[in-house]
C-alpha cells in the first residue's frame, strides 16, 4: 500500500495526535512511514499541517501538490488552503466547525466557515462533511474532533487502515482513561452516513 495523507487545522486542535495514530497504525501493518509537521510558533492558534506518507516508495516526507489521497480537514478554511495537495478523485473529510482567527475581533474579519464548506462541496467530488459540533455535544467532549475525522476516514476505506487498526493505535498510544471516549468517537464517526 502507498498513501499520501494531509492533515490540516489550527494549532491546538489535535492534528499531531491524529498524525501519530495514523503512523502507528500503519507501522503496525509493517509499513514504512514518513511524516512532517508544523512545529513552533504556529502551534498556538496558527495554521498547522501534517504530511504523512505510507509505503516503500516514499523517500521525501513532504507531499507534492495534486498527490494527496486524502485530506483530513480539522477546519474548513484550512482545508481550502490545503486543497491544491489533493489528487484528482481524492477524498476530503472535513469538520464543519470553523475556528475564528484569534485576531478576528480586532480586524473585524468576516471569515465565514459555511462559505468554505460550500466551496469545498462545489469543487471536490468526494467529500464527507462531519458535524463535529453535534458529535462533540452528543458525546460530551470537545476534544474528540481528531478521532471523529479518523473514524470517518477509516470507515470510508480510503485511508487504507481500518477502524480496528486505529482503535489498536489508540490502545497503544493514548492513556487508558481516554480510551472509552476515543472509541465512542471512532464508532460514532464510522457509523455516519
Amino acid at each position: 500500500m502507498s498513501k499520501n495523507i494531509v492533515l490540516c487545522g489550527v494549532g491546538g486542535q489535535g492534528t499531531i495526535l491524529a498524525s501519530k495514530l495514523i503512523s502507528a497504525a500503519a507501522m503496525a501493518q509493517g509499513l514504512p512511514v514518513k511524516s512532517a509537521e508544523t512545529i513552533g510558533m504556529a502551534q498556538r492558534g496558527g495554521s498547522v499541517f501534517s504530511h504523512i506518507r505510507i509505503g516503500e516508495d516514499a523517500v521525501c516526507p513532504m507531499i507534492a501538490k495534486g498527490t494527496a489521497d486524502i485530506i483530513l480537514g480539522f477546519e474548513p478554511g484550512e482545508t481550502v488552503r490545503m486543497l491544491p495537495y489533493l489528487r484528482q478523485g481524492g477524498l476530503v473529510v472535513v469538520s464543519k466547525r470553523a475556528v475564528m482567527p484569534v485576531t478576528a475581533a480586532l480586524s473585524g474579519s468576516n471569515y465565514n466557515g459555511e462559505k468554505m464548506v460550500t466551496y469545498l462541496r462545489s469543487v471536490v467530488e468526494r467529500i464527507m462533511v462531519v458535524d463535529t459540533d453535534k458529535a462533540c455535544h452528543e458525546l460530551g467532549s470537545a476534544k474528540i474532533v481528531n478521532l471523529l475525522l479518523l473514524g470517518a476516514a477509516a470507515a470510508s476505506g480510503e485511508l487504507g487502515l481500518s477502524v480496528e487498526d486505529i482503535r489498536q493505535a489508540v490502545i497503544d498510544r493514548v492513556p487508558p482513561k481516554f480510551h472509552q471516549l476515543n472509541f465512542s468517537a471512532l464508532d460514532y464517526a464510522a457509523n455516519l452516513k
Binding site: 504556529a42 496558527g46 491544491p84 482567527p101 474579519s109 471569515y111 466551496y119 469543487v123
Partner: peptide
C-alpha cells in the same frame, strides 16, 4: 483540485 472556481478569501492566522 479547485482551480476552476476561485476560493473564498482565507483567514489569516
Amino acid at each position: 483540485n479547485g482551480q476552476a472556481v476561485p476560493a473564498p478569501e482565507l483567514p489569516v492566522r
